[in-house]
Structure formats: C-alpha cells, structure tokens
Simulated scan of single mutants.
Amino acid sequence: MTQTVEKSLATRPAFQASQQLADHLEQLLVDLTDLHLQGKQAHWNVVGKNFRDMHLVLDEVVDAAREFSDDIAERMRAVYVTPDARAATVAARTSLPAFPAEEVQTDETVDLIVAAIYGVAGTARRIHDEVDAEDPTTADIIHTVLERLEQLAWMIDAENRVANRSEPRSIQE
C-alpha cells in the first residue's frame, strides 16, 4: 500500500501553471524571441558612426535575448506549459514595434533597439506581480531578465546622450 501511494504522489507535478501564468510566460517568450530577431536584423544592417561598437553590442542583445528566451521556455516546460515561439506565432503576437528592413544609421539603431529592449522589459514588469503571486520561482527568473535588459538599454541609450544636456527618452512616449 505504501509503495502505491508514494508512486502516485511522485508522478504528479508539485506545481502546474494556471492559464494566466502560461499566457504571461508565452508573451514574454514571444517578445524575447522578437528582440533576438530584431537584434540580428539591426546587427546586419546598422551603418554609420561607431558602426563597430554598435555591431558588437547588438550581439550582446541577441545573446541575452536568446539565453533568456531559452530560460523562459524551459521554465514553461517545467511548469507544464508548451512554449510556442514559431515564426508565425512571434509575428502575430509580439508587442514590439517592427524593425526596419533596410540599412539603419547607428543613432537611429540605438533608439530602435533601446525601444525594443524597453518593450520586453515592459512586458516583464507588466506580468511580474501576477507571476510572483502564483509562482515566485518564475518571478525570480523575470528579475534576472529585467536586470540584464535594463542594463543593456541604459548602456546602449547612453550612445546618443550628451553629458548634462540631454535626458533619457521616456519609455512612456
């Protein structure tokens, strides 16, 4: 009798995500995947002053977005949610504005990629409290995502600033 009870308890997950948690994580996954794609698009098509520095920092954005999308997708699987980051899904569900298809000057690339990073950070912040209420472990992953993305946004945004004469653009614009 004891073996039967222990086996049935062991085969049930200790935690399964609600539909709300699943939807929140799916949106974050989609936005991170789009950030990865936009970062590569920018990386291939950026031109102008400070090209090399911008080209290299875009690889940092791509690497972070790719790593975090994998972390979120694997967390989704751990809480019994099936992630969907297929191209059609990302195109249909992203909350990020589209990145241009043509060459983009470095200063414009700064503004566009910072807006995309803050867009993902906005998604993470929007879902955070509801995720934390249901699953603090997943919220911890979101903290890590936010910390790195907001650091990248600050560092990249500084490229277009003038010391003591300009302020960062409001992300509410």
Rank of each mutant, 00 (worst) to 15 (best):
Ala133Cys: 00
His43Thr: 02
Glu147Asn: 14
Val5Cys: 08
Thr94His: 00
Asp63Ala: 11
Val90Cys: 10
Met1Cys: 12
Val110Pro: 08
Gly48Thr: 08
Ile142Trp: 10
Ser166Tyr: 07
Leu28Ala: 08
Ala10Pro: 01
Gly39His: 01
Val46Cys: 04
Val120His: 04
Thr123Phe: 02
Thr33Gly: 03
Asp31Lys: 09
Glu26Met: 09
Arg126Thr: 15
Pro168Gly: 00
Glu26His: 14
Asp23Ala: 15
Ser69Arg: 13
Ala85Asp: 09
Ala42Asn: 02
Ala87Tyr: 14
Asn50Val: 00
Glu103Val: 03
Glu159Gln: 14
Val57Gln: 13
Asp111Asn: 09
Leu152Val: 06
Pro83Asn: 08
Ser8Trp: 10
Glu159His: 15
Ile113Phe: 00
Arg66Ser: 11
Leu32Arg: 03
Thr2Val: 10
Leu149His: 10
Glu134Trp: 02
Gln3His: 15
Val131Ile: 10
Glu167Cys: 00
Glu167Val: 07
Ala116Thr: 00
Asp71Leu: 13
Thr89Ser: 11
Phe68Gln: 12
Val145Tyr: 02
Leu96Lys: 02
Gly39Ile: 02
Ala22Ser: 15
Gly122Ala: 08
Ile72Ser: 02
Met54Asn: 02
Asp111Gln: 13
Val47Ile: 15
Val162Glu: 11
Glu150Ile: 13
Thr137Val: 15
Asp84His: 07
His43Asn: 08
Leu96Pro: 06
Val5Trp: 13
Ala17Ile: 09
Ala133Tyr: 04
Lys49Arg: 13
Ser166Pro: 05
Thr4Leu: 15
Leu29Lys: 05
Phe99Gln: 02
Ile171Pro: 10
Ala133Ser: 10
Leu35Ile: 07
Gly119Glu: 06
Thr123Asn: 06
Ala139Asn: 04
Pro100Met: 02
Leu25His: 09
Trp44Gln: 03
Pro100Gly: 03
Val62Phe: 05
Arg77Cys: 00
Ile171Glu: 06
Asp59Ala: 04
Asp135Ile: 06
Tyr118Lys: 14
Glu26Gly: 10
Gln151Arg: 09
Thr94Met: 01
Ala101Asp: 12
Leu146Tyr: 10
Val104Ala: 04
Asp140Arg: 11
Arg77Tyr: 06
Pro168Tyr: 08
Arg77Lys: 12
Arg66Ala: 12
Asp157Ser: 11
Gln151Asn: 10
Glu74Ser: 03
Asp135Leu: 02
Arg93Gln: 15
Val46Ile: 01
Ser170Leu: 09
Ser8Phe: 14
Ser166Arg: 10
Asp53Tyr: 04
His143Phe: 12
Asp111Ala: 13
Ser170Thr: 12
Leu32Ile: 09
Arg75Tyr: 00
Asp53Phe: 05
Glu74Pro: 05
Leu29Val: 03
Asp84Ser: 06
Phe99Cys: 04
Pro168Thr: 01
Gly39Pro: 00
Gln20Trp: 11
Val57Ala: 01
Pro168Val: 09
Asp53Gly: 12
Val90Asp: 09
Asn160Phe: 09
His143Asp: 15
Gln20Phe: 03
Glu108Lys: 14
Glu60Ala: 03
Arg52Pro: 00
Glu67Asp: 14
Val90Ser: 07
Asp71Met: 10
Ala121Thr: 12
Gly48Cys: 01
Val30Leu: 01
Ala73Pro: 08
Ala91Phe: 11
Gln20Glu: 15
Thr4Asn: 14
Arg75Asp: 01
Gln41Trp: 00
Ser8Cys: 11
Leu112Ile: 08
